[in-house]
Design a protein around this nucleic acid. Structure first.
Lengths: 218, 218
DNA sequence: ATAATTTCCGAACATTAGTGCGGATGCAAT
DNA sequence: ATTGCATCCGCACTAATGTTCGGAAATTAT
């Protein structure tokens, strides 16, 4: 195996830096100017050498068809833990209309702020989204201003779970522990020092299940 | 925010797959044939839309100058978010001796349960550790049984921050908001409905600063 | 229905970008 | 020196690639 010339190493590391910066490989002319070479053919020539030596692979006749040899194939995760991207859909405040992804736009979350959470602590639940809590209206559920609540879409929950529920007659929305008791539904705050309230089950609409709460005060 | 059309989503996922396979972005014509579009201008048009919506960024006039928005910069590490491994040192309960890593064993965390948290939401703080809360003794700090508190070693904190403090005379340890007021130190729970308490500053020892709280009820 | 908007088409056009080729230049072996 | 080989130059050429524009078609709003 022939050793790489200085120029070849220079080109190689330029390619590396370029990809690092742009997320796509350089053109022959990018390399030319980047390495202070006076002719594209020189680049072409050395690229062939590098290909021969196996330092990089190349889709010929294709612009930017370069791939560093040492590079991981594909984008499959080489390191890093499994994460779930959770869209931050908005804020939640007492009584405000509760933000919630509509079915048809569920897959259309582009542009939304995404929060990466480790799968290990979120679980692999689907249909997750996050809301930022504004105000102290959830204080009785041990949730305060600035907290991030991770929610999962659900139309029903098991007794005892915390959920975002809407009292139709009040048109208010809060987070409470949910207990269905036949025709009546009892909602009790997480703080046991607070009083529970009971409503007609038909007056209570479950919107989402609360998966987790994240409070950061760094 | 305008929703993405079907075609735009189609293009978006094609780009994603293409990069996955080639390690460099597709050309307009790659997208054209890949998505069964009859004109390059349609691709160009939708690429502009996608750029407007922020779904991808684009180096215009540059071949293959595409970059997916969600993508981490730098292809070297294709995916995987930065995470910080936080050791779960034990549990905290009212009055119990507060677990805390000793300096000489700090680096010896082998066998400890580690919790990976995204750096983005934890910050890059060093000397972090986690404790699981047992019992409802922290209820007045909006922290309940089963919660995970992320802490940072600290011997002092700024006023208003939440910290694990030990009342020497009581030999109790709790989480409270901390306010140094000269010779006296006021500790007040996060729940404003609760009363604050004041102690001689010399009787209060700061153990750790609370960085974050994680409550999971999946 | 009618108008407005969005999306698509086709076909040119203008760069950008990869390749080829004759001829230097530099260096080492003969 | 002369030869051989690896590099490098310039330049031209062709293919690849992004852009533009008038108008049609589809969709949505009025």
């Amino acid at each position: 195996m022939k050793a790489l010339s200085e120029r070849q190493q220079q080109i190689l590391s330029f390619i590396e830096e370029f990809i690092e910066e742009h997320d796509y490989p350089p053109t022959v002319r990018d390399i030319q100017s980047g390495c202070g070479i006076s002719s594209t053919s020189v680049v072409s020539y050395n690229l062939d050498r590098l290909k021969d030596s196996g330092a990089l692979s190349r889709d010929s006749e294709v612009s930017r068809g370069l791939k560093l040899a040492g590079q991981k194939s594909g984008t499959a995760a080489p390191v890093g833990i499994d994460t779930v991207a959770v869209p931050l859909l908005g804020t939640i405040a007492a009584g405000s209309p509760f933000p919630m992804p509509e079915n048809d736009t569920w897959s259309d979350l582009t542009g939304q702020e995404l929060i990466d959470l480790p799968q290990a602590i979120v679980g692999l639940g689907d249909n997750l989204y996050a809301l930022k809590v504004r105000g102290e209206s959830m204080i009785d559920a041990l949730i305060s201003d600035g907290d991030l609540v991770i929610m999962e879409q659900a139309s029903s929950v098991r007794n005892g779970q915390m959920a975002a529920v809407r009292i139709k007659s009040d048109n208010t929305t809060t987070l409470k522990h949910f207990y269905a008791e036949g025709p009546r539904t009892r909602l009790e705050p997480a703080n046991s020092q607070m009083e529970a309230m009971t409503f007609n089950s038909s007056d209570v609409e479950v919107i989402s299940r609360v998966i987790a709460v994240w409070r950061y005060m760094g």
